[in-house]
Amino acid sequence: MKPAPFDYIAPTDISGVLDAVAVEDAKILAGGQSLVPMLNFRLARPALLVDITRVHDLRHLRRVDGRLHIGAVTTHTDVEHSPLVREHWPLLSDAVRHIGHSQIRNAGTIGGSLAHADPAAELPAVMLALDAQMTIATGSGNRTVPARDFFHGYLQTALAPDELLTEIVLPHLPTGSGADFSEIARRSGDFALAGVAVQLQTSTDGICTSAAVALIGAGPVPLRSHAAEQRLIGSELTSGDIAECVQSACLGLNPPADLHGSADYRRRILAAQMQAGLERAAMLATADRRGHDHAR
């Protein structure tokens, strides 16, 4: 249970990282909470580890023009304790508490979790539900990839081996929004068997104007349930609307079966979580509108 030998470099700026990862068989190390176990098991045997945690420009949480900019090596704990995130992006705040344990969240990073892209992880689904934009540094400048195009498969993303995820940008959420995150795991801190991230937007008269329903454990990547979302938009988000939406979402679901749960079991817990999560998010959206009216 010891890593195979590798070389190590810890650049202090982004161009230093890009130079280092241009070498064949280099691997980026951020918080190490997924990579180091893989090194210990020798499932990963890179020739060079490029530690990006010394790049000061990659660790920040700031609101610019209503949007949240998250530096890739910002830790889960930084996000968990951020009043800014709690107030404006409660879906992210809620989901981050489910990641591993406090000791994992203290070291693990937002960018690391997204670049690792475990389909059972919380953050990929949250980024999908929030329509996040991923900023990627390449040898020929930056490029931006929306979350829906970022996750390609089991542990596969849009990142090339010589690129660096530098920042995640979350859009502004207008008044009348409500969110919910829930997951089922066998033990506290385990990867989820299934989970649901919901972000709803309502108009001043309570009509759903946009809906995002992202599912964990429903496939090799986190999925958006477009069937569910289409059914919700234009509705008043009553329990009946939500029940119909969950029914149509489940028709297209084909979750994987493994030692921890059959496909049918996963489908049933996804349905129960969607129903409960959408009801809570609809209530919060109503409360958000009323709170705003009171403030005026």
Binding site: A10, G32, A107
Partner: peptide
């Protein structure tokens, strides 16, 4: 366990508890 599950190796780095089996010694420079 040496893969971040059991917590027996928890130490504090810059005041925050972390798994010392998931941190490389060079990272604590």
């Amino acid at each position: 366990c040496e893969h971040g599950v059991c917590g027996a190796c928890t130490v504090q780095v810059d005041g925050r508890p972390v798994r010392s089996c998931l941190v490389l010694a060079v990272q604590t420079h």
